[in-house]
Amino acid sequence: MIEHRPIITVLAHLTLILGIAIVAFPIWVTFVAASHDAVRMTQVPLPMWPGDQFFVNLNKAMFEGIAGAGGIPVGMMMLNSLVVALMIATGKIVISLLSAFAIVYFKFPFRMGFFWMIFLTLMLPVEVRILPTFEVVANLGMLNSFWGLSIPLIASATATFMFRQVFLTVPDEMLEAARVDGAGPMRFFWDILLPLSRTNIAALFVILFIYGWNQYLWPLLITTDASMFTVVMGIKQMLESAEQTTEWHLIMMTTLLAMLPPVVVVLTMQRMFVKGLTETDK
């Protein structure tokens, strides 16, 4: 609908500006809080404009951490988070691609049974199976390790289902042409299917990276060693462990830092992400 009435235009802009303000205000507060010192953050009213301590706080958070919360540098927590998020995203994509490939292109007994079993796991997210999963991970001696942090989150019915749909849109003749050309199954997977699902993989990577980065409950449960803390749960630790005054300026700085990687991933992969969600031309 294209209309050229000034009032509507003004109104539309006002609505949008209001919406952006609502979304952006907390981020602004976080940024402002991260740029003042500890003393200023305990005084009322809270500051609305940035102070001059931003880089001091950044330095302290990144390399020293909060003493009361075990003194883990945020830099290290972010590294942990990054490793875990990458392991989860890559692991999920690799496993889902392979299982979707098996389900779509191979005939084996109980094929549909397996498909539905995978599908049913949609009903069993980590939160539901957290105790048995914890026991398994504990018995395998994977507490306080990257494997323990990532493996239980890797199996993914959604991604398998998505790749299944992608593979189903690839015409059968493509497989037949590849067979006539002499490509074996893995060669077909690698040379044809993978390039054709490129944009879908990128889109999924963005979603899964953020999913992995934002994990809170699971890392909280299985990491007792402070050196394995991830940043999202680290923030919570900082709040709770503050026997002295809560160091809001540092917590806010950590929050700001924790927001960055997902933003970077989304921004850099935005193009592919949109393409992957909308492109249908095969």
Binding site: M174, A178, R179, V180, A183, D191, I192
Partner: peptide, 20 residues
Amino acid sequence: LEPSERNIAMVFQNYALYPH
């Protein structure tokens, strides 16, 4: 024999070219 071992070439109705 597999198609690739039969010394044949096939042209499909929808061409089946590799789009990428």
